[in-house]
Each structure stands twice: as structure tokens, then as C-alpha cells.
Lab assay of single mutants.
Amino acid sequence: SISSRVKSKRIQLGLNQAELAQKVGTTQQSIEQLENGKTKRPRFLPELASALGVSVDWLLN
């Protein structure tokens, strides 16, 4: 799922939720909701993929 991929990649990069949120241009709460499965397809998906160094396709599939 996107939530597990985001969380595992974030941890692999040594980032906390607030640091990832800053790179993406969103809030820590938005990252938390995404990782908890409350958000399925965030509006900041391209920025998120870029910050994590992955493709949008990788996040979604």
C-alpha cells in the first residue's frame, strides 16, 4: 500500500514525518494521515515521490 511504502522509504532515508513534510511542502499531520492509511491519494503525490527519490508509479503499485 502507499502508506507502507511511504513509511518504509521515509525511515530508510532517516527522515521523520516533519522532515519529510517540509521537503514535500505539506504538514506533518498530512504525512501522518497518509502513513496511517487515512489518505489514499494525496494531492502532493508528485512532490512526495520526488522527496523520497521514487516514482509516482512505485508509490501507487
Rank of each mutant, 00 (worst) to 15 (best):
G53T: 04
I31V: 06
G25K: 06
G25T: 02
Q17W: 12
L15V: 06
A21Y: 00
P46C: 14
T26C: 14
N36C: 10
I2V: 10
V6N: 00
T27C: 08
S55Y: 05
L52A: 00
A18V: 11
K38L: 14
K7A: 11
P42K: 04
T27W: 03
N16C: 08
V24A: 11
S55C: 07
A21V: 00
N61L: 08
D57C: 10
G53Q: 08
L48E: 00
I11Y: 06
A49C: 05
Q29I: 11
L59T: 00
V54H: 01
E19S: 07
E35D: 02
Q22K: 14
K9S: 08
R43D: 13
E19P: 00
I31S: 00
N61I: 10
V56K: 06
R5S: 04
V6P: 02
S3Q: 09
P46W: 10
T39E: 12
R43W: 15
S3E: 09
S3P: 08
R41E: 13
S8L: 11
K40L: 15
G25V: 03
S55F: 05
L13K: 07
V54S: 03
K23C: 11
I2K: 03
L20W: 00
S1H: 11
L13D: 04
Q12C: 10
S1I: 11
N16V: 05
V24T: 09
E35K: 01
E19R: 04
L45K: 00
L13V: 07
G25L: 03
A18C: 12
G37D: 09
E32Y: 06
K9F: 03
S55W: 04
V6R: 02
E32K: 12
I31M: 05
N36K: 11
N16I: 06
Q22D: 13
T27D: 12
K7P: 01
L34G: 01
S4Q: 14
K38V: 14
L48I: 08
V24Q: 00
S1Y: 09
Q17L: 12
S4F: 07
R41G: 09
F44I: 06
G37T: 05
K23Y: 07
Q33M: 14
G37K: 05
A51R: 02
A21N: 01
K38Q: 13
Q28L: 14
A49H: 00
Q22R: 11
F44H: 06
V24H: 02
K9E: 04
E35G: 01
W58M: 04
E47L: 09
L34A: 03
L45V: 08
K9M: 14
S4L: 11
L59W: 03
R43T: 14
E47Y: 05
I11P: 02
V56L: 13
K9C: 13
E35H: 01
V6M: 06
N16Y: 03
K40C: 14
Q17Y: 09
A18G: 11
R43P: 13
K23N: 07
L13R: 07
A18W: 12
L52F: 03
Q29Y: 11
T27H: 07
T27K: 07
E47T: 09
L60V: 13
G14Y: 03
T27F: 04
Q17T: 15
K38P: 08
Q22V: 11
A51I: 10
Q33N: 14
V56Q: 10
I11F: 06
L48M: 05
N36D: 12
P42F: 12
P42T: 09
S55A: 08
A51W: 04
P46F: 12
L48R: 00
T27E: 07
G25Y: 02
L48S: 00
V6C: 10
K40M: 14
E35M: 03
S1A: 10
G37C: 07
Q12P: 00
A49V: 04
S8W: 11
E47A: 13
V24K: 00
G53F: 04
G53S: 06
L20V: 05
V24I: 11
V54F: 03
A18H: 12
S8K: 10
G37Q: 06
I11A: 09
N36W: 06
S4R: 10
L60E: 10
S3G: 15
T39V: 13
R41I: 15
Q28V: 15
S30H: 13
I2A: 04
L20R: 00
W58I: 04
N61R: 08
E47G: 08
R10L: 04
L34H: 01
Q12V: 07
N36S: 13
S1V: 12
